[in-house]
Design a protein around this nucleic acid. Sequence first.
RNA 1: GCAGCAGUAGCUCAGUAGGUUAGAGCACUAGUUUGUGGAACUAGGGGUCGGUGGUUCGAAUCCACCCUGCUGUACCA
Length: 444
Amino acid sequence: MIKEKNSKPSKELPLGFVDRQERELLVRDFIISNIKEVMIKYGFQYLETPSFEYSDSIGKFLPDKDRPDEGVFSFKDENKWLSLRYDLTAPLARYVAKNYLEIPKPFKRYQLGRVWRNEKPGPGRFREFLQFDADYVGTKSLQADAELCVMISEILEKCGLAKTDYAIKISSRKITEELFKKLNITDSKQKLIVLRALDKIDRLGWNGVNELLGAGRKDKSGDFTKGANLKTKDIKIIQEELKKKSPETEDLVEIFKIFQDYNFDNFEFDPSIIRGLEYYTGPIFEVNLKFDVTNNKNQVIQFGSVGGGGRYDNLVNNFGNYDAPATGISIGIDRLVYALMQKKEFKVKQYKPVVICVFDKNSMKEYINVQSILRKAGISTEIYPGENKLKKQMEYANKIKSPAVILYGDTEIKSGKPTLRDLSSGKEKSIEIKELVNEIKKII
RNA sequence: GCAGCAGUAGCUCAGUAGGUUAGAGCACUAGUUUGUGGAACUAGGGGUCGGUGGUUCGAAUCCACCCUGCUGUACCA
């Protein structure tokens, strides 16, 4: 086979996709197992939906648009456009609409799954990521909204975060709605610009937001963003309204009362949080971390939230027949992993195998015997995979961070006492086979 | 998308008034030790200096365009 040099396949990954190594995966597994435990306790049922959906089932795309690829990965299958899901909420709405008559009302489900977004990735943000979602469908009760917040904090604390490490920020769409009425802002485009500006308070502060509400803002790199062109007087009114310390809308008053009954206090009323602009209709939540997150160059980066959600009473109704008010919350698992791994006190135990060295292929029977004794006792064990000099085998064991090596050569086999070498101390001991398990457990 | 910065060995980087075979540390391979890892020493492999074109007797170095990455910003249903 002749291959042009230029035709070698690329070993690079597509933008926004990453390989994930064991350390990270173990942290992720840990988080997931905590999530599952909590979900069972709260009585949610487990659901999985496919990665692909019909494009029009999970988003609203203009009929004249040739390719529905704004932000999503799509392809045409026969005559229908399919898209990789960009979140788990839209597929849930589709699922509920499809199975409405069979499912319990309210329907409580949770889901873990990868989602894909065709956007520019940022620090800790990828184009493929794992999301966790818990939703109540078919209830208007604010008890549901409140419980989601309590539940999400239980998960975070189970994962090792302290109360001071995070906060659930809460607001309601009703606040901004009333504000628009008051200021007589009716143009939906301008509403969007205002909402987007307000959404950035945590990053830009009021100074930056005021610029965006007014003429516009120039960022650090010198790039300019046009503003909403509001009057100074109106900007002032917005500021006053959004700086209020306690909520005046009914929904939030009720939720905060429920929090009291739960004895839950790790939340902050923050009228400046906006979140996604399309489908939320009531209370909205955002899960924010309060410690600095850095990149691999040790620079503190703008990390943003690890999750959020809110009430979306009309989403299921979009499919036609059924009216199902709903509320839900989600966590970006990979982002949480990324942040959690930076907490110094956070360690996940990795189990590495004890390595049985190979001196002579003809003694394989003896090695396998020792191996199965150890494995039966639940000890991760392997016979050195290959035929190499002892030195190589030791280097291998060291490289994989094996806790110990078993030397079982001719002399040891004759006496029936393998040598156990503790790889962290370097000490060796001659041990009866039946004592091996006990001795190794001391080392591990 | 827009903007700023950057791309030299697997990794982190040095190397510009343009000049012989392009360097270091770490990692890797072999050996010093043919039954012993993590330390040390010795030797070795590995680079079309992101790509393409241009200027020049001569380009990692200068110019143009492109690609990729980082950071910010916009968008994020």
